[in-house]
Design a binder for these strands. Structure first.
Length: 550
RNA sequence: GGGCGAUUAGCUCAGUAGGAUAGAGCGCAGGUCUCCGGAACCUGAGGUGGAGGGUUCGACUCCCUCAUCGCCCGCCA
């Protein structure tokens, strides 16, 4: 719709008596907006303001000249207000036609922005040393939703989870499990200093005992710990995947850190860096010259102890991402990792890649508000609320939608008590209710033996509320574009609430199923069906169900 | 000390390729119901957009300074 108006304006501009060179039309930047405010028309444009500085003329004068040359069968009237805004009022038939297009083939209206470009979204990537907590939930909700949005816009999306399944933290996990394992056989050893204290460790140890009996008791300690670690991370990873699935998150690929070590990919990457003169030895450690690319200080790749830092394998992993030929790579990180951004980009530049391809989205922290007080989160100190608990409390739909209401870069206070006690206040129900109502309308019509005929009687849709709802369909597509460009799926959640609100208002003020007027009923059912499809599609992109009854 | 983010109604928050009168939910004060699902709708009160400058036809939006809060600054992840 907007595009039609836009080209209409361009035509008017060219035929107008203005000294605007034809060759510049493509470069001309101006906006055409769907207007919610009826006194500003259905569409408005700032065209005259944009031209003002180019043509050195008063905006109003330019607007007047353009308006004189606007010509279309769809246009009802055109006004100039606010010193130069051109407000366009279109005929109802314009919207009716758009609705017809939508009903005939809604997919054709979805702008294929991606054009088949390959895009990778890496998110969650929590270490397999403990269950997912509600902080991870935010990342999961964000990553999955933005992936779905990009997918529908024509990108080829790969959702990926990177598993840090080796290194210090995994050893700590092994030691922690080992502690409980040995204790079971009467051997008390000191609890590891940085061990994991959660109850889940005990449970893993118990399962291990059940499977291995006392097999590990007399094993050499390092070996036994390694066995415990292997077992532990496998169990935990299974749990994580289970949690993700119940959160409606399914990854295309789980990428193991161990793998890139085992096939020498890490060493190969470090050699590349050395050969490029970007890595050097100092104090028995291997350093990367990240300062060459704006980092504050150089970073260690291999410690003087010979251990690899996580940074080393992260670089290798990111090299792998680039080698796989993605056009865009999106990393979703917790905001506490923001200090890592510079060095990661620096490392990629050091390898000779265009680091602009990597977009790092920082998700701000989630605070838990419990009985009015903040609960700090730390996996190691066992001060976390598991995601699985949250899903059980408030439900998958509410949890996912709730997370998506906030923009990623603002802090999110998750008030558990509120979510629990007043879950009906959650906007997700509001949106779902609109959908269920629409479904109910069709059931109702069916009971009254009213035959629904798609695409018929659309010319009867003339109410302001009706045309406004059709505008909302157009707004849906614009919202998707916006959300994908800004990487903010929260735009979609906000949109759905507004759409639901508009529908509820319409519903309350209009008799939709009316046995006394079959044609009008049919027209309205066509509109409702369209709105229902938008809600369903939108909720689906957020990983939320659209129930037919509630 | 440096970096990133935040600061909009009593509370929780929307609102960006700068646009016309800054919105919603909750709470508060009232209303709608012989009618398709009241998990709904409507009306009202409530705002120096943290403070101060700048850029321009126009700034909640961009730039600078300051304040407050959160997070980060390791040969941890």
């Amino acid at each position: 719709m907007v595009n039609i108006i836009k080209s209409l304006l361009k035509e008017a501009l060219l035929s107008a008596n203005l000294s605007f060179p034809k060759s510049d039309t493509d470069k001309l930047v101006f906006s055409v907006e769907l207007q919610a405010n009826p006194s500003y028309g259905d569409f408005s444009t700032n065209l005259a303001f944009q031209l003002a500085s180019i043509l050195k003329e008063k905006p109003y004068k330019i607007a007047a000249e353009i308006v004189n040359h606007v010509n279309s069968e769809f246009i009802d009237k055109v006004e100039i207000k606010g010193g130069g805004f051109i407000n366009i009022f279109v005929k109802a038939s314009f919207f009716q036609k758009f609705l017809r297009d939508f009903l005939q083939d809604e997919n054709r209206l979805i702008p294929q922005l991606g054009d088949g470009k390959k895009i990778q979204v890496e998110f969650v990537s929590a270490n397999p040393t403990g269950p997912l907590h509600i902080g991870h939930g935010r990342g999961a909700s964000f990553g999955d939703s933005i992936s779905r949005i990009l997918d529908i816009l024509g990108y080829k999306v790969t959702k990926e989870y990177y598993i840090n399944d080796r290194g210090n933290q995994i050893t700590n996990l092994g030691k922690s499990v080992y502690y409980w394992y040995m204790l079971n056989f009467g051997k008390s050893i000191p609890f590891p200093e940085d061990g994991y204290k959660g109850e889940y460790i005990k449970i893993i140890a118990e399962k291990l005992i059940h499977e291995c009996k006392d097999e590990l008791v007399n094993l050499e300690e390092m070996l036994a710990i390694s066995r415990c670690a292997e077992y532990g991370k496998k169990q935990i990873m299974e749990n994580i995947i289970q949690d993700l699935n119940s959160f409606n998150v399914y990854f295309d690929k789980y990428f193991s850190e161990t793998d890139i070590f085992e096939n020498n990919y890490v060493d190969e990457t470090l050699n590349l860096l050395k050969n490029k003169g970007m890595a050097y030895k100092n104090n028995d450690a291997l350093w990367l010259k990240t300062t060459a690319f704006g980092d504050d200080k150089d970073r260690v790749l291999i410690k003087s102890t010979g251990e690899y830092t996580y940074f080393a394998s992260d670089i290798a992993y990111h090299r792998n991402k680039f080698e796989r030929g993605f056009d865009i790579i999106i990393d979703v990180w917790g905001a506490d990792h923001h200090g890592y951004v510079k060095r990661m980009k620096a490392a990629l530049q050091a390898l000779g890649y265009n680091s602009d391809k990597l977009k790092i989205v920082l998700i701000q922290m989630v605070n838990l508000i419990k009985k009015g007080e903040k609960v700090s989160m730390s996996t190691r100190a066992n001060e976390f609320i598991p995601l699985s608990w949250l899903i059980k409390e408030v439900g998958k739909d509410a949890a996912r939608f709730f997370y998506c209401l906030r923009s990623p870069d603002s802090h999110f206070d998750f008030n558990i008590d509120l979510a629990k006690e007043k879950s009906s206040d959650n906007p997700v129900y509001y949106v779902q209710y609109a959908y269920a109502r629409i479904k109910s309308l069709f059931r109702n019509a069916h009971e009254k033996n009213i035959l629904y005929q798609e695409l018929e009687n659309l010319e009867l849709l003339v109410l302001k509320e009706e045309l406004n709802l059709i505008k909302n369909i157009q707004a849906y597509f614009e919202t998707l574009i916006n959300a994908s460009i800004l990487l903010e799926p929260n735009k979609l959640a906000t949109f759905l609430i507004e759409l639901a609100s508009n529908f509820h208002y319409y519903y309350n003020n209009t008799k939709i199923v009316d046995e006394g007027n079959i044609a009008l009923t049919n027209a309205r059912l066509n509109l409702c069906k369209s709105i229902g499809r938008i809600i369903q599609s939108g909720l689906n992109l957020l990983g939320v169900d659209a129930p037919e009854r509630m």
